[in-house]
Structures are given as C-alpha cells and as structure tokens.
Amino acid sequence: MKKFIQTIEDACKDVKYSEILYQYKRNLLDEMNDRACDVRQAGLRDEGVIEDLILSEYSDIRGDFDRYYAAEKRRKKEALEHKLLLIGTPLLIVLSVAIYIIQGILFDSWAGNWLIIVGTVFAMCILCMMAGVRKIMRLKKIFHPIARLLTAGSVMLVAVFIFLLCGVTIGWSATWPIVPGGVAALLIGDLIFAFLTRQKFAMINTFVYLPAIFTMLYIILAAFNIVSWGRGWALIFLGIALDAVIGICILLNNAKYKYKQEVEDVWKEN
C-alpha cells in the first residue's frame, strides 16, 4: 500500500492541491487496493509482485488525472447548468406570464402577446432537449437515434414558432408554406447531425431525404409563385437526379480503391 501511495504522490507532485486532486488520489488508491484484494483472492501471495502487477495497470497516472480533472470540471459545469435549467425554467415561464399580463394591461393589447409565453416555453424545451442531446452523444451509438429525434424536435419547435409568429404578424393564410419549410429544415438538420457525428447509414439517409427536401422546396416555391405548380414538380426529379449523381460519385470513388483479387484467379484457373 505504501508503494501505491508513493507512486500516486510522485505522479501528481506537480499538481496544485485541490478537492478534485484529493478525490482522484483517494479513488485511485481505493481502486488499487481493491485490485490487490482481487489478485490475493486469485492466489497471488508475493506482495512485491502484487504491487508491481497493479502499478503496471496504471502506467499513466498523470495523464489519467488530467482526464479525470477535465471530466470533473465538465461534470460540475453540467450539474450547475442542470440546476439553473431546473430552477430557471419555471421561473422564466412565470416571468413570461407576468410580462404577458403586464404588457396586456399597460397597452390594453392582448392579441398575439401570448407568443411571449409560447416562445419562452419553446425556448426552454429546446434548451432541455439540447442538454439531453449532449448527454446522449456521450453514450453508445445505439442511443444516438434518440439524440437525432431530439434535434429534429428542436428544429420543428423553431419552425412552429416561426409559423405562429408569421401567422400573428402577417396573417395565417400566407404562413402555411412555413410547415413544409419546417419539414425540410428538420431533414437538413438531421442530415448535418448525421454527418457531423459520423452516424451509420448517413449516406442512405441522404438518398432518402434529398427527394423529400426537394418536394418541400417545390411546394414552398410554388406557393410563392416562384415556380408554377404545373412544371415545378420537376424539382422532385432534380432531387432524385442529385441522388443518382451522388451515388455515381461514390461508386467512382470506391472504384479507385478496388483491389484486383488474386484469389479469384486461382479459382477460375482450376
């Protein structure tokens, strides 16, 4: 045990004392002692060998501490953020309701002011969802689809808010193209997320999403009379054509990495 303490102290001697440092050293020593118990139970009796064996498993204590320190800092920061979110969310919602009432009374105008409350609720929801995304992204890839759903949900909430804002300010009849716009934004957002985080099947997502995005684009442009409803559908084919171009590019790129298989020759020959 003395050797463990000495090794830990030596490795961390240039680090200024802090609660995190103490906690790290304490945990590490406990871990080493647990490991020593394990190998003693396995039948190892030579204490010198036990010490050397355990210490060989901790070859980079200093580097490990740096990682522990960074993780602890991040954990504390996130804990603070969570507390703020937990306390701040109901407070902000109450505040937004108060602003809504005060503004309504002061200016005697209630129509449309409810957007203050809706906007605040949406903003809080998006913040919570983003905090969830950050946490999920540190988990195994199998959980990443949940993060993708939360990201898509956030994009959708922004689109819904814009829709409501436009509906209140410029009238509801002209705002409906924001809905397909929101769908397109959701798909684009998901694609960006998939590529940035190197998700499996991101390319397959691209092939599926592109025609859908171009369909939404067609609806939006036609709604604003930029393209005609009659001919604008060609945009959908543009999406499919873009898919084909990307597919061909991938195939051409992959062909560069094709290796002539000698194995095949042996089989053919015989």
Binding site: V39, A42, L44, R45, L53, E57
Partner: peptide
Amino acid sequence: TVLICFFE
C-alpha cells in the same frame, strides 16, 4: 505466480 499475473 506467473500464470496469475498473465491472467490479470
């Protein structure tokens, strides 16, 4: 002794 170390 050697085998325990190797198993670990």
